[in-house]
Nucleic acid binder design. Structure first.
Lengths: 109, 109
DNA sequence: CGGCATCCACACGGATACTG
DNA sequence: CAGTATCCGTGTGGATGCCG
């Protein structure tokens, strides 16, 4: 567990702190695809393809520990695990909106 | 020059792209301290202390190449170089506002 | 199905020393 | 003053293989 921590010491700078939470190749996308849907591990892997298991599970782990994502495991066979945004994850995604818009207008996409 | 590039491929995801521009130990702070002031290299180093020359100049280099910061060198002795936010840097800082606020309220600082 | 273990490459931050 | 050159430690993404 806890393989990855923040690169930044997420010191006393709020910018750094928030950016640290979504710094990573797949984290912003994870927030996005989970916006309106609860998804299973396999679904996530499918939508973020090509992502490796290690990196995906590490990102999910980080974000779950950081309270952005909820993880629900069902004791069934075959196993089923569902991921969803927490309220904090949702509000973070919203706070990311202006940044996305900035990128779109400034970089023409 | 150009020692560092983005970790992320800043692919086609606007979030990744914008986040990549400010991912780095000192980049958010650089935007912040340059918000209302034009500052010299030594001033920046002083305000971001403790930052090493290599890392600071690399960050300045990145952000200058990315059009967030302007660099003006004066042909004097001793040398003088001034850094300031470009309009794009200013608008990016504004777009970062909600993220900073989110961090403050969610993480209680 | 939903991971974790292992190994690898390299991007990044930092300390120190030096220069135009 | 404003950097560059060098070396180093570690964080992070990725490929592959295995397991409950």
């Amino acid at each position: 567990m806890a393989q990855y921590t923040f690169r930044t010491r997420s010191s006393d700078c709020p910018y750094e702190l928030a950016i640290g939470l979504v710094s990573g190749r797949w984290k912003p996308r994870l927030l996005e695809v989970l916006k309106d849907e609860t998804l299973r591990y396999g679904d996530l892997k499918e939508r973020l393809k090509p992502v490796s298991d290690k990196v995906l599970s590490a990102a999910l782990d980080d974000m779950t520990r950081n309270g952005l994502i909820s993880r629900t495991a069902f004791a069934e066979i075959p196993p089923r695990v569902e991921y969803a945004l927490t309220p904090q994850g949702e509000s973070l995604l919203e706070a990311l909106g202006p940044l996305r818009d900035w990128a779109r207008t400034e970089n023409g996409r």
